[in-house]
């Protein structure tokens, strides 16, 4: 698991020091799916970079603990333990072919050629990108590009994958495709997933949601618990899903009507009334 202990991060600006994050305590178990939400400017992307080791906390620690072993701790190694995928794949793709792009990180590790070829082949297969092996990345669709970015990160064999609003620029079809790919990586390979997002659908696949507000963790709970608390919803810059608002309306007549987060849940709950 990844454990954050009292993590704070501050930056120096011309106007003085700005505290971006303060005293974040968080445990991300191996193979779990978590979401991080919060208003623009609340520190989500900074947190993603701290968890992935790209940034070092000003104080506190981000450590990797093997499962069931509380003694052996290690600092997160950037790019190796935790892979980070950004919002715009164009900012993350560097090479002239998909294959070279995926191999880029591996080359920096100075792996033997055969091992590189094997890993690139594996991730191409895993993400269904084999037919694009020799394509220039800029010729791909947004969803395919994002999958190439994910592939490049996966080739490093991280135990966690962080997606920093990785689907917000995609159309609904591509978004669904990338989301399904990520869920598959979790269920088949046991890769832990952290999704930084503003999109409700992506919050709902997480078992735990961290709500950041003004640089502090306002909540760390299940999606249902988060949406049940109006104060947290407000702090997190969230808007209640329509189904949840409809559920609250139903409670005016049926006081024990459940809080539903999707239309399908709402329909089921309503039909059980009849």
């Amino acid at each position: 698991m990844i454990r954050l202990d009292k993590v704070s991060y501050q930056i120096e600006t011309s106007a003085g020091a700005v505290q971006v994050l303060r005293d974040i305590d968080l445990e991300l178990p191996d193979g779990s799916i978590s979401a991080i939400v919060g208003p623009n400017g609340s520190g989500k992307s900074t947190l993603a970079r701290l968890v992935s080791g790209l940034l070092r906390p000003t104080s506190g620690s981000v450590r990797l603990l093997p499962d069931g072993d509380n003694q052996t701790v290690a600092d997160v190694r950037p790019g190796l333990d935790v892979g980070l995928v950004f919002q715009n794949p164009d900012n993350q793709l560097v090479a002239t072919t998909v294959e070279d792009d995926i191999a880029f990180g591996l080359e920096n590790l100075e792996l033997p050629h055969a091992e590189m070829v094997r890993r690139v082949g594996d991730v191409l297969h895993l993400l269904g990108l084999e037919q694009f092996r020799d394509y220039p990345p800029h010729r791909l669709s947004g969803g395919q590009k994002q999958k190439v970015a994910i592939a490049g990160v996966l080739a490093m064999k991280p135990s966690f994958l962080i997606l920093d609003e990785a689907t917000s620029l995609l159309d609904p079809t591509n978004r669904r495709e990338v989301r399904q790919t990520v869920l598959r990586l979790n269920s088949e390979l046991g890769i832990g997933i952290v999704i930084v997002t503003h999109l409700l659908d992506e919050v709902l696949v997480a078992s735990r949601v961290g709500v950041l507000a003004h640089g502090a963790l306002a909540a760390w709970d299940s999606p249902r618990a988060v949406f049940s608390d109006p104060a947290v919803v407000e702090l997190g810059g969230l808007v209640l899903p329509l189904s949840a608002r409809a559920s609250f309306l139903m409670r005016e007549r049926w006081t024990d009507f459940p809080l539903c987060l999707t239309p399908e849940e709402f329909a089921r709950a309503t039909c059980q009334l009849n």
Binding site: V37, G38, P39, N40, Q87, E165, S168, L169, H198, L200, G237, L238, V239
Partner: peptide, 10 residues
């Protein structure tokens, strides 16, 4: 609104 939080989007 791509990338804006739900509150700002609205």
């Amino acid at each position: 609104t791509a990338g804006l939080d739900s509150g700002s989007k609205l």
